[in-house]
Design a protein around this nucleic acid. Structure first.
Lengths: 132, 132
DNA sequence: TCACAAACGCAAATAAGTTGCATTTACTAA
DNA sequence: TTAGTAAATGCAACTTATTTGCGTTTGTGA
């Protein structure tokens, strides 16, 4: 098994900074916009590959949001769940420790049944205060 | 407000039959394959529009599965959650009434906070028994 | 400071889903 | 029973998200 060395590049550091400052998961498009404000204009292929590397090294993780057709990402250390407005796409973080516990217990149960759990995806779609 | 009349077509009835026989959510591609076995070869545009109509009339509902990039659908009356193998794509239904309750209570809480909940999406990604 | 793998950019390809428009068909009302 | 109308369908072209191949640049350990 060959170990890939993880390099420090200005782009990568900036990406991680942006994610650590963001309160919500970001898509490639959103990330591109935020990078532009920091004077980075990387090719989209580079960004997709950054996401791949950063997810593989557990720095980030994928988040699939109910109302969106594109993948979103967040810091792996900041995993939580979201409400997404189907009209304006606004995203709100939803905290519910009981739900977390219930999910953890379900995952535990699945592990005992011979499945290896890698991730869970949960989100709620609906209309936010402004949109209904 | 104009009411659209919902028509019965052979294709539509077959689609609903296929979903009622299926134990797991189906993507457009999977549906196309099953329709072919019933000698239906509809255009993909037609299928996307069928999904639109059938979801709007609450016969079906969208399901986003963790390990997949394409939308899946299931009978609205059969809503449950799924485990998806990231390797072989096998899908297993996961029953957990406590989790359901917890989600319902969270949705209730969100409603009281001025949000209109339309749907939730939950799935677990991992490796099935055969793949690890 | 050199070599090599990791990171990057560009162009083209693929996959999922959508739109416009013309044609066909199910259903309703006469 | 039939004629009119809106729903359903098909086709081609388009958009958006993501991936692949390949050549070039750059960070980092020896």
């Amino acid at each position: 098994m060959i170990k890939k060395t993880f390099r420090n590049t200005a782009l990568r550091n900036t990406i991680l900074e942006i994610f650590s400052r963001s309160e919500k998961p970001l898509s490639i498009v959103e990330l591109t916009e935020l990078l532009a404000k920091n004077d980075f204009f990387p090719n989209k292929t580079t960004l997709y590959r950054q996401m791949e590397t950063l997810c593989a090294t557990k720095k980030l993780q994928q988040v699939s949001l109910a109302a969106s057709s594109s993948m979103h990402y967040e810091l792996a250390s900041q995993h939580h769940h979201h409400f997404v407005c189907t009209d304006c796409n606004q995203t709100l973080c939803v905290e519910d420790s009981d739900l977390e516990k219930q999910i953890a217990s379900l995952e535990q149960k699945l592990s005992l049944n011979g499945l290896k759990v890698q991730a869970h995806h949960f989100s709620i779609a609906g209309l936010c205060e402004n949109c209904h």
